[in-house]
Computed example of a mutant assay.
Amino acid sequence: MKNISKFDYCYGCSVCASACPKKAISMHIDSEGFYKPIVDDSICVNCGICLNVCAFISLEVIQDKDFPIRNYAVWSKDEDIRNKCTSGGVGFEVGRFLLNKGYNAIVCKYNSETQHAEHYLAKTEKELIASIGSKYIQSDAIHGFKQIKKGEKFFITGSPCQIDSIRRWVRIRKMDDDVVLLDFFCHGVPSNLMWQQYLRELEDRIGIVDDIVWRDKETGWHDSWVMKVKDRYSSWFTKGDLFYKMFLGDRCLGRQCYHNCKYKYKSSAADIRIGDLWGRKYSSDEKGVNGVVCFTERGLNLLKEMHPILHIEDSTLEIVAESQMKKCAHKPISYKYTMNSLKKGIPLKKILQKASYIELVEQIPNKLIYYITRLPSKTLEVLGLKEKPQK
């Protein structure tokens, strides 16, 4: 079959399903909690479009290798926007700016009814507001991406793998000049099984979970990793929030995040990449700063055009991406146990406790090296771990 059905797993970006002219592909959450395309072979005509738009099966990222990427520290001059957004407010400001220039926006929001992140079409600033803030779960993108039509202009945001597939699709449709693509520095996507388990445990404590906020600057930008339900619940990563301990500990990411991510650091198919500009230079800033990387002339010109509404400082990639991941996430030795436990609905606290014990096996060699290298020189010589000085 000339379609994507032969792959056991992929990025789950949904572009193949959105691009299929026969609607033969649908997206389903697999046994490990990640989106996967399912092909109806009775409808499929083997046109191969799904393979042509799939970033997962390609070795290359669609990127302008000749363009010298430009790096900036940026934040919105609108203090209200900067305060409401995850970091500096650049993503929202780009969307608002382009809406006013006649673009449509395909962006992501969290749907409390379905308990999923989802891409949707925004045509007004009011509709765009729902996209404010980070959503650290895989998005249901098929409906949103299906709104991309020839003859109209679009601003599209997504994870780096989604944007690489979108770039392939719009290029096939000769729409490259009609889109602005924005991605972000991506940590990876955790299993939906973990998110659903987290919600079940939270609902047992506070009842219906709605109006959820994933990041909040109540205690400052640098301590903004929080799971918050308006007026009822707040749980910070720094105080042991179970979702963030699972997610940021890389304990239940998709297999593609460990082995097949091509998009770390300065690799992107987007016009613009944004992220939190963590690091030493802005360590005292608690309002939020975006690191911005322009990968195309279109992205650079757009940023320059927005100078009246954005504070823009020249920077370097080393500063902009100082605390961002440079390579794929490390798959912990506890991964298999964690995934099996999530399938059984075991409480997250118990999973974390046992996973931590399992992971000690990985930590032993590094801890031994750490302590051995701090032994006195004479002791190291006796143990044969250091050569005696020659007389």
Score class of each variant (00 low, 15 high):
His222Val: 00
His222Cys: 05
Trp225Arg: 06
Val226Leu: 10
Val226Ala: 12
Lys228Trp: 02
Lys228Ala: 04
Lys228Tyr: 02
Arg232Trp: 03
Arg232Gln: 13
Arg232Val: 06
Tyr233Gln: 13
Tyr233Asp: 09
Ser234Trp: 06
Ser234Ala: 13
Ser235Ala: 14
Ser235Val: 04
Trp236Phe: 14
Trp236Lys: 15
Phe237Asp: 05
Thr238Leu: 13
Lys239Gln: 13
Gly240Cys: 10
Gly240Asn: 12
Asp241His: 07
Asp241Lys: 08
Asp241Leu: 04
Leu242Asp: 12
Leu242Asn: 10
Leu242Ala: 13
Phe243Trp: 13
Tyr244Ala: 06
Lys245Gln: 15
Lys245Met: 14
Met246Pro: 03
Met246Trp: 00
Met246Glu: 04
Met246Tyr: 01
Phe247Glu: 05
Phe247Trp: 06
Leu248Pro: 02
Leu248Cys: 07
Gly249Lys: 11
Asp250Thr: 14
Asp250Lys: 12
Arg251Met: 15
Arg251Cys: 01
Arg251Val: 06
Arg251Gly: 00
Cys252Val: 09
Cys252Asn: 06
Cys252Gln: 02
Cys252Met: 02
Gly254His: 04
Gly254Gln: 03
Cys257Val: 10
Tyr258Ala: 02
Tyr258Asn: 00
Asn260Ile: 00
Asn260Glu: 14
Lys262Cys: 04
Lys262Gln: 04
Tyr263Gln: 03
Tyr263Leu: 11
Tyr265Asp: 13
Tyr265Ile: 07
Tyr265Val: 09
Lys266Gln: 07
Ser267Trp: 03
Ser267Met: 13
Ala269Gly: 08
Ala269Gln: 07
Asp271Asn: 12
Asp271Thr: 11
Asp271Gln: 05
Ile272Gln: 07
Ile272Cys: 11
Ile272Lys: 08
Arg273Ala: 14
Arg273Gly: 04
Ile274Tyr: 03
Gly275Val: 09
Leu277Asp: 04
Leu277Gln: 00
Leu277Ile: 03
Leu277Pro: 01
Leu277Phe: 10
Leu277Ser: 01
Trp278Asp: 03
Trp278Lys: 01
Gly279Trp: 05
Arg280Met: 08
Arg280Glu: 11
Lys281Met: 07
Lys281Trp: 03
Tyr282Gly: 02
Ser283Lys: 14
Ser283Leu: 05
Ser284Ala: 12
Ser284Ile: 06
Asp285Met: 00
Asp285Gly: 00
Glu286Trp: 04
Glu286Thr: 11
Lys287Gln: 14
Gly288Asp: 03
Val289Arg: 01
Val289Ala: 01
Val289Glu: 00
Gly291Asn: 06
Gly291Leu: 06
Gly291Ala: 15
Val292Asn: 08
Val292Thr: 09
Cys294Ala: 15
Thr296Tyr: 06
Arg298Pro: 01
Gly299Trp: 07
Gly299Lys: 13
Gly299Val: 10
Leu300His: 15
Leu300Met: 06
Glu305Tyr: 09
His307Thr: 14
Pro308Thr: 13
Ile309Ala: 11
Ile312His: 09
Ile312Ser: 07
Glu313Ser: 09
Asp314Gly: 02
Thr316Met: 07
Thr316Leu: 07
Thr316Ile: 05
Leu317Ser: 12
Glu318Ile: 09
Glu318Gln: 14
Glu318Asn: 13
Glu318Ser: 15
Glu318Tyr: 03
Ile319Glu: 12
Ile319Pro: 00
